[in-house]
Design a protein around this nucleic acid. Structure first.
Lengths: 300, 300
DNA sequence: CGGGGAGCGTATCGTATGTTACGTATTTTG
DNA sequence: CAAAATACGTAACATACGATACGCTCCCCG
């Protein structure tokens, strides 16, 4: 998905900068900049189209050609000639580019304003991206949803199972380590797939299964989730913004941002959500949890 | 144009709040909130559509029904039923609403940060504190220091061992899972204390030991760190701002902020530092790591 | 266990949308 | 000033898109 649209974007860049002689040092040419460059060499009608677009950027470009042309006060073919002049093959391609640009912009709202140029090194963009990811993740996460999940997790009539993928299993373990202290019947599923599967026999409608699964989604987890779902287990899924296929079976889905300037995906956002939930569950279970903790101390 | 879409928007509002009995004091019901309200009363397929939309808000909703349905993993009619349930007459009307919302949002950049007015609950102080912790942690952490540690970790002439405490061991495991891929001889020490101790025999001056230890500091870890130190092992310590006693033996100390409004301490800052280091080490080992990864893929 | 209902997907249909050909208007140039 | 070239809109066209009818499957309730 990402790589594809990126490829398309780069392809367009080459086509565009090629004839302006800018060379290869261009970083990220937005469509708005593209227009600013060429607006002078445009005929009157297309210039009107360009001005209308930048005035209502980018929303008007997402509507139909008819809407666009009407608002600009020109005809439909003029709009099409306009986008053709920008280097796009057809109108849908132009719209896709706008959407991609919008998506990229919405993903990192802060880093664009606070580009600190003094830190030349590797750490800065990484931490900035992580902060953005956290903000974005929580922006899409309503308190209502968090509270519902916490409530479900605090309900200790049923059992609670946690499991994760190749890189996310430590998150499951982290969460399990905390929750096992404040409520009974918390189990972190480890080891081989056949081991988990044998635990399915104990799972039922009252039980909760927490799954961590980000790209690339593991087949073993999907299979397991499906079987658990068939047994009526309530699934809470921690995944990335592209949603693991397990979302199909999940009762609750938490989508965390994972993109960082690194070869690896970041699980930091999911980690913080996990910590938040741990806190919320603990709070909901007061004073039960407090008593339980004291009792535990006594056992040492 | 504007007045027309406004009219449509208001009309939809009335239709929507009418049956929820909220009355007229609703200010501006965004589609995201609309979804949050109704997602519970939705069948599985439509819920999946809703989750996909929220996770990729709002761009996926601006694309075609086919695109939307494909990304959500459901069929086109399900998408249409989903938007119908939200109160829209047809798909274009739904898209118009999204576009209007987007336009309003882009016009007043201030409203962007305060898009969630419902933040009265428990989540907000938690995430705020975590963000502060991250900023503070990295403020006291120089790039120079990070690079030195990364360099040490990238030096695969010696072995690398990772270990953590009761709650932080998952962090050690997370780091080990990544580093073991890009370099040889990475070992996560698990199990009982006697197990680690037996590994001491293999440790020497060229080796690195990464320890995660936050309050309350575990005696077993301290004992282990001391013995490793005596053998000349280079210790990298992840701890909290009050510094574990292990700092005495450590070559490098990373102090992360852990205070959050919760009964538990937060390891989020240490987690992010760990991820940053993973990225830095990976970058330093290019193209070695890339080749190693490819080779690994081939073994699947 | 059998009947009813809700949920979802497949396949088909109608239409709104982008596209293109062509003619007219307007500007440019010799 | 004439003639050509460019620009622009009208109208017809084709396609892709959203809408819908239908049937299968699963689940709940009697």
């Amino acid at each position: 998905m990402i790589s594809y649209s990126l490829f398309r974007f780069v392809k367009r860049l080459f086509r565009n900068v090629g004839d302006t002689g800018l060379g290869t040092q261009t970083t990220t040419t937005s469509i708005a900049e593209l227009i600013a460059d060429r607006i002078d060499s445009m005929p009157a009608g297309e210039r009107r189209a360009a001005q209308t677009l930048v005035a209502n950027y980018p929303v008007i470009g997402l509507k139909t050609v008819a809407d666009f042309s009407q608002q600009a006060g020109v005809s439909s073919p003029t709009i099409l000639r306009f986008v053709a002049r920008l280097g796009f093959q057809n109108y849908p391609e132009f719209q896709s580019a706008l959407q991609d640009e919008l998506a990229a912009q919405l993903q990192s709202p802060a880093s664009r304003t606070t580009i600190s140029p003094n830190r030349s090194d590797a750490a800065s963009p990484m931490i900035e991206a992580t902060l953005d990811n956290l903000r974005e993740t929580f922006r899409h996460l309503s308190d209502k949803q968090l509270n519902e999940i916490a409530e479900k997790m605090a309900d200790h009539r049923g059992h609670m199972f946690l499991i994760g993928g190749r890189f996310t299993d430590p998150l499951a373990r982290y969460m399990a380590a905390h929750l096992a202290i404040i409520r009974p019947n918390v189990f972190h599923l480890v080891g081989q797939e056949s081991m988990w599967r044998d635990r399915l026999i104990d799972m039922g409608k009252r039980d909760v299964l927490v799954i961590f699964d980000i790209r690339r989604y593991q087949d073993s987890l999907i299979r397991f989730a499906e079987k658990a779902h068939q047994r009526g287990v309530q699934i809470v899924l921690f995944t990335d913004q592209w949603l693991s296929p397990i979302a199909r079976f999940a009762r609750h889905v938490i989508a965390g941002r994972t993109a960082v300037p690194s070869p690896w995906d970041s699980s930091a956002a999911l980690f913080v959500v996990a910590e938040t939930l741990i806190g919320a569950v603990t709070r909901q279970m007061e004073p039960d949890s407090a008593r339980r903790i004291r009792e535990m101390e006594g056992l040492r």
